[in-house]
Design a protein around this nucleic acid. Sequence first.
RNA 1: UGGCCCAUGGUGUAACUGGCUAACACAUCGGUUUUUGGUACCGAAGAGUCUAGGUUCGAAACCUAGUGGGCCAACCA
Length: 670
Amino acid sequence: MSEDLKSLNFIEHIIEEDLADGLSIDKLRFRFPPEPNGYLHIGHTKAIGISFGLGERYKAPVNLRFDDTNPTKEEQEYVDAIKRDIAWLGYKWENELYSSDYFEILYNWAVLLIKDGKAYVDSQSSEAMAEQKGTPTQIGTNSPFRDRSIQENLDLFERMKAGEFPAGTHVLRAKIDMADPNMLMRDPIMYRILHAKHHRTGNDWCIYPMYDWTHGESDYIEQVSHSLCSLEFKPHRKLYDWFKEHVYNYGKTELPLLPKQREFARLNLSYTIMSKRKLLRLVEEGIVKGWDDPRMPTISGLRRRGYTPKSIRTFIDKVGVAKRENVIDVSLLEFCIREDLNKTANRVMAVLDPVKVVITNYPEGEVEWLDAENNQEDESAGYRKVPFSREIFIEKEDFKEEAGNKYFRLKLGGEVRLKNAYIIKANDVVKDESGAIKEIHCTYDTDTSRRVKGTLHWVSIAHAIEAEIREYDRLFMHESPDSDKAKDFMEFLNPNSLKVLTGYLEPSLSKAEVGERYQFQRLGYFNVDEDSEPSRLVFNKTVGLRDSWAKQKPKTQNKTQTQKKTKPQQQRRSAISVIQQLGKKYTNLSEEKQIKTKAEIQTLAKDVSYDELEPLFGTAVKKAGTRIAVMIVLKELLKKDLERNSVINEFVEKALEDKNEILVKEAQEV
RNA sequence: UGGCCCAUGGUGUAACUGGCUAACACAUCGGUUUUUGGUACCGAAGAGUCUAGGUUCGAAACCUAGUGGGCCAACCA
């Protein structure tokens, strides 16, 4: 193992600092805390990759902890799916834990908090409490129940637990500060009454702890050293720390380590949505066939689509970790899966949009079994036999009656190589009444040593097996479907996200098994779907091959859309600010470029008023470039109707004495 | 109108914590090789680090202000 020379992300920097400050490396401990209320998606993979990745890097334990404090939304089905997905990704958790395991200790701590006067029972409606809470810009007001006696609070809380009250009648709140600018500190709710059956604790409890109270304390109980979560929890940190510091008094002997919460930006993928709620809607409204529909960004969807765990892990590695909002281009994900599959997937031939080719000089009824290499990237992959005969299919797209010489494929009078077989020449076409090509008549040549520009894949008609091919396109046509505030994300659905075809495959595929991945040569990577039956194989297209030929054809809509997009900031930039920027780099430019830039500044100067320019006379002496640009603009203005004044004279004189020659030269021309 | 966070090529991250010509990956464009218009290899273009001021011999990094974006008012997590 070589030393990891990769630069550290900000979380790794924090850990390294903590280590340097004396934290013992064996105290490092992480956790991944999903709520079992939905399936994991590619966005979660980032969180998984960060915490489990850190675990692998530092050989530290990573707990899988289900944050199951809301029995109304959570189900065992999701627990199972989450475990399956994490394991599939190849990560190993130290302990499988549940927040619900800590209900008892959490309750006991809550009682201590009441005894310390740090928590109280509130008995208002949620509406009343919401009103008292204030707004982000307006402080809140105290609850009339805020100063109940400790005895009364203890009594009420115990009776809440005992199930004496209906839901919604009482809550336990932390007593912090209703005037805190951070709304989470305004006496947050710790417990609510919920007469619901929990997937693990059954009917043992009718009060359930809230996220903030549960999550941080679970970290503390598990002695997690670094509790990593996404950015929207940043405001929670203050409360996380408040709870933690109070509870520390009750547990410091057995639980000496205080966890540290840090936040990173979540992953966004272009053309997809990540919200569990919205994904659920796609499932419920039948837009997709289920959580594992290959078009879904869920881990189970990607798995079914043919993605490998390795490709997803390298993807997560490549996207990095930082605190700024980001949208990752799907092309990066596609790059990762192609990179992996290129090395591992065996090549086969399949024709998805067939046209018949008759090789007129090949004997009728004859069949040859030719050798075909399975994977030139992997010598151990070996060879297989493919049958060749008089009648074969090729792709419609691979033949044109006439075409320019940039078209390497088959055309009348032209030659092309058949992959793993012979060179053929197209002599004639047979058309039906409508003019559609029915057959292409070719002759073949057994001398395959000649250089021929194009190579086509093909399949012998008599030997081909039919299979269902499912081709997928992005589910949404908008780059960030859920960012439009005016439109519902459903409006951006791509109506053609699924295309079902019948493909003709070489016979070696008849033994293909569910989950196996292949490269259909020149087309893309495909895997065998679980809907397959021995009599009827079903393939999913995982991803197409890179296609630099397709790019030469007219650009697609999406391309033009993304290119039109410019930063809003830059759109409304004034001439003067553009000039400032040009000036900044002016002194670094080559002479040739300086001339160009100067002309540009002169043009822009037409849109600059003297009032805009004057403040820049005070530009620092060392910023010669900016002053040069200002000088150029000044000269343009003087050429027009501007009159010289003392401020201008002063600026010019100062420039004449400058050590920058360009500036002096420009000033001399005034 | 408050608080907190963020700002580096088209995209995502770096920059040894103030010091070389701002690096890497994806995307883009060109070339070489090739029985996949794939892969591999070589090369190019693209940012002077949101703006302005300041500190400093020296700023992407530090300070101030501005601009732009995000988050925060669920008995959700």
